[in-house]
């Protein structure tokens, strides 16, 4: 491996840009690729796309023998809109699963250091906070406030992003009303269909701890290429 390959990986990581190092195991030939290079590599294309999406390094069979695809994806992030009770249990779970968690809630009574120690707390309105945040393919987005004034604008930003998971708390009825409001804002039904709602896998969760577990399970399922509970 050349030093410049390692340096490129470091700068990709700093910019949160997914990358992979391909090594042809027989010849030792090596190159670094990014998502936009995959189209030019049809014989490996599908396997490469899947390796990057599922964050799974693996050997692929190419025309010139086995190719090791070493995936270097940026670290996972989770953005939680709503410094609510469920979020207090979700934060430690997500942190254990290697997510860098940010809580956004303009209500300072909720978003307090005391309730959320050791986590990024942003007490701005979510559409403002998210404009600078850059929701990307390695970010999960959760709207948990139940309050349309806070959740709706945040969902608008999330639906325009590449976030790999978008979930919103609320019953089927609450979600149906939310869909109506988002449609009225001019968001397409196809985009709205990306929202996982009611949020979380259906494990019959009772109380905030179990709801946090069901959310974490669904985010994991989607990250790993399983379907989750909906949309």
């Amino acid at each position: 491996m050349q030093r410049q390959v390692v340096e490129q990986l470091m700068s990709d990581r700093a910019e949160r840009r997914p990358a992979a190092v391909l090594t042809w195991l027989a010849s030792g030939e090596q190159r670094i690729i990014h998502a936009e290079d995959i189209a030019a590599m049809p014989e490996l294309g599908e396997g490469l796309t899947e390796a990057l999406r599922l964050d799974r390094s693996r050997v692929l069979e190419g025309a010139d023998g086995d190719v090791f695809v070493h995936v270097f994806n940026p670290p996972l992030r989770m953005v939680v809109v709503g410094a609510v009770h469920t979020a207090q249990f979700l934060v430690p779970m997500a942190t254990l699963a290697d997510y860098d968690v940010t809580i956004i809630d303009p209500r300072t009574a909720f978003a307090s250091e005391e309730r959320f120690p050791n986590v990024n707390l942003v007490t701005e309105w979510p559409d403002q906070a998210l404009a600078e945040f850059g929701l990307d393919t390695r970010t999960a987005f959760l709207a948990l406030t139940h309050d349309p004034k806070i959740d709706d604008p945040a969902l608008g930003v999330a639906l325009a992003s590449e976030a790999f998971y978008i979930g919103a708390l609320g019953s089927k009825r609450t979600h149906a009303k939310r869909v109506e409001r988002l449609v009225a804002q001019g968001i397409s039904e196809q985009a709205i269909g990306r929202i996982h709602a009611p949020i979380g896998l259906n494990i019959g969760a009772v109380g905030p701890v179990e709801i946090a577990m069901s959310i974490m399970a669904e985010v994991t399922a989607v990250l790993r290429g399983k379907s989750g509970s909906g949309p």
């Binding site: 030093r3 390692v6 990986l9 470091m10 990581r13 964050d55 995936v71 270097f72 994806n73 996972l76």
Partner: peptide, 24 residues
Amino acid sequence: MGSPNTSILSEALGWLDEGREVAL
């Protein structure tokens, strides 16, 4: 497991800077 940690590679750059011969 998540993404492979780049900390090993970042250490590798440090070792190269020190003039060490390095294998991965």
